[in-house]
Design a protein around this nucleic acid. Structure first.
Lengths: 253, 253
DNA sequence: AACCCCTGTTGATCATCATCAAACCTGATT
DNA sequence: AATCAGGTTTGATGATGATCAACAGGGGTT
């Protein structure tokens, strides 16, 4: 089901076309968040040689389940979601990615992407051809190390989500979600207390294993309790500690 | 909470002690399932140089959350579970590992293990020191490739579990769980239709986001319906197709 | 400005699974 | 053989969140 035979149509390119351009990791302000973190100048220049960039408009796919895998991608600007379509067509969002985060590592396993990656706003990614990355990381141990750390981080992230999905109640999930977003915004120099949600209530629900109505209700409840301020997609965190307290449900004794 | 300051106590060793011994990947019958798959003889011998083995008794930990990370492990014989202890002490099982599967890749990200790994029966693992693996995989591209594939496979596995936890009902989860076990047993040369569960109902429930009573009830129901035969921990798959059908809940039209 | 569609909010009801509780089974220990 | 503990089964009840439904609000288009 996942492989729908339309792989060719969505295949991505590595050649430098009008849609892509040579990147410059050495100049990139996301350098310290992304896979290039900690690299020496000379190694950064080597990375420049293999990395290209591509703009993705809101709503467009970066890749789709079933596409042949050939590159991983670093988000440079913008916001993405990844999702899987289950055997019967129900969507499950598996992650939201912002600047500095890596997309596409699911494809290494079988050379075929297992999930879809969709831009939730106009975005730009760095295209890192996987073959070249393997080659270069044999030469540059710090790049090798960093790549492995990013793969491992993805594993840890997924396991954290498994705990969330396996053992948290609706309010805990929403609180954890908001705090996670807040932390990641802050790490990127944005306000940790005020931000726009790029995704719909339905996408949040899918990600958290809840229905959109439950997401909406819970946000309204948090708003009524003064924990957050909600205006459509605009969120203000008013009582971060209060949200944290929801996660330690009653073990404070 | 996860780091409980007892890391030293549980630190693992790489030196060849009475508890460990030099491995021989080149002789190992799990070779084709494990990270050594597809390696040339000469490369296998290089792997032999860095890999040791260790026996773990039932109930013992291979590593614990908070331990310093230094190696990944390939299960040679036996059966393991990995679990996380949430901030309030509730256990969440994140996986069950059998022969040929890799443990410990969660530690690469921060050099500290985030989960516990526990033997559910007397087991033996191959210890693959991570520093050495990095070094060797710079020399041996096929090892590098294979290692990356295993990391990616873990990501894909986790995402599959996220779909299960996020969108399946109790019966679907149990059916998927049984079929998954069945498939993996078969890949290892065991019967796919008859096996012993190494874990308790509670551990199954934790893994699947269900309570032990729900696990027990669902197994009883499947038994009553003739889909499976249940005698305590002994399971027979009587109608594999029937279990599969439960997963495609009603989209067959 | 008027319209429409998508998204979000809120209410009422229902199904699923968690919780609480009791009893049973099995294997290990004495 | 008797005892005991951990694991399992089964029943009764209840809470959480899903479902069904109606409506409201915004943003974009004409």
């Amino acid at each position: 089901m996942i492989n729908r035979g339309c792989a060719v149509e969505h295949k991505t390119f590595f050649s430098i076309t009008p849609a892509t351009m040579r990147a410059a990791c050495s100049q990139c302000n996301m350098r310290e968040l992304c896979i290039a973190v900690g690299l020496e100048d000379q190694d950064l220049h080597k990375l420049d040689q293999i990395v290209a960039r591509r703009k993705i408009k809101r709503g467009e796919h970066l890749y789709r389940a079933g596409d042949t895998f050939s590159s991983i991608y670093a988000v440079r600007t913008g916001f993405f979601k990844t999702d899987l379509i289950g055997d019967e067509g129900q969507e499950q969002v598996t992650g939201f990615q912002m600047a500095g985060e890596i997309l596409g590592m699911d494809g290494i396993s079988t050379d075929i992407h297992v999930c879809n990656a969709t831009a939730l706003e106009d975005s730009e990614v760095c295209i890192i051809p996987y073959e070249n990355l393997e080659t270069l990381s044999r030469e540059v141990p710090s790049l090798q190390r960093q790549f492995h750390k990013f793969m491992s981080r993805e594993i840890v992230r997924d396991q954290g989500l498994m705990v969330l999905l396996g053992s948290m109640k609706a309010e805990e999930r929403i609180a954890a979600f908001l705090l996670n977003l807040s932390t990641r915004m802050k790490a990127r120099g944005y306000s940790s207390s005020e931000f726009h949600l790029r995704m719909t209530r339905e996408e949040i629900g899918s990600y958290l294993g809840l229905k959109l109505e439950t997401v909406s209700r819970t946000l309204s409840k948090f708003d009524a309790e003064g924990l957050i301020g909600v205006q459509h997609k605009h969120i203000r965190i008013l009582n971060s500690q209060g949200l944290h307290d929801l996660l330690d449900h009653g073990t404070s004794s």
